[in-house]
Design a protein around this nucleic acid. Structure first.
Lengths: 134, 134
DNA sequence: CTGTATCCGCGTGGATACTG
DNA sequence: CAGTATCCACGCGGATACAG
């Protein structure tokens, strides 16, 4: 199958050395989405892997109702959260992280912590770069 | 690891409990970008935190020349990579991860590994979801 | 309270052509 | 080789209105 795709002794496409590179890239795009990250983290920490729609909305400043709904639907479809509807008046809906969703928690936290700890350094670098260019 | 819990019991906006929530969200969007992730990982592994333009292009299937250039410029501006031009004919340009860039390596790998290890489970969940809905 | 539906402006990014 | 410059199609996502 892959007999002669060596350039200098290493696979040039090693990063995508998967059965389905497109699927990997697609999923990577999804889990890297800012609303997805905020949602996973919020869902985990508000009470403990479980929260209702309105709580999530309050916990994630500036997210539109549309994006909250859309992102939650995608997470449900991807098997990362479970949606539970309580037929009350007024209606109540709770979302809970699945085991798969919980397993994504660590990667999200790691990424979020890096951003939290380094955004100021990045900002300084940007300023220096822009100054040098002007 | 639970760095965001520096606030009292239950801050509804704990996720954005930073001096500049907008900056954090913005940077999170950038480091979550698929081309950024592939680029950081490729840069680190081709030879060892250093590679030239054409090598990166080969290592990241389907990336356009434009996006490679744009992403590299942003990474340089953010202080994650350093660009070094060798005035030869033909010209040669090498990019190298800075210390800040290297510190982002682990988060990227963690996220990438999760995707690599779970995209099939996600795909199955999607199929089940779609079947149930149709 | 928890959505769904529609409109639509705007940024993202591919394709293409050209340059030092 | 390593870009830069344009054009422009497309989808993301905000705003708004409405519903169960």
């Amino acid at each position: 199958m892959k007999s002669a795709n060596k350039t200098q002794g290493l696979d040039p496409a090693y990063v995508c050395g998967h059965k389905d590179p497109l699927a990997v890239r697609e999923l990577l795009t999804k889990v890297g989405d800012k609303w997805t990250i905020f949602l996973i983290l919020a869902l985990a920490k508000i009470h403990g892997n479980r929260a209702r729609f309105s709580e999530l909305e309050k916990s994630i400043p500036h997210i539109s109702q549309r994006m909250l709904t859309v992102t939650l639907r995608n997470l449900e479809r991807d098997g990362l959260v479970i949606r539970e509807l309580f037929p009350e008046v007024p209606p109540r809906v709770e979302y809970e992280l699945t085991d798969l969703g919980k397993s994504l928690l660590r990667p999200m936290e790691v990424l979020f912590d890096w951003v939290s700890g380094n955004w100021e350094a990045v900002r300084r670098s940007q300023s220096a770069f822009d100054t040098k260019k002007s």
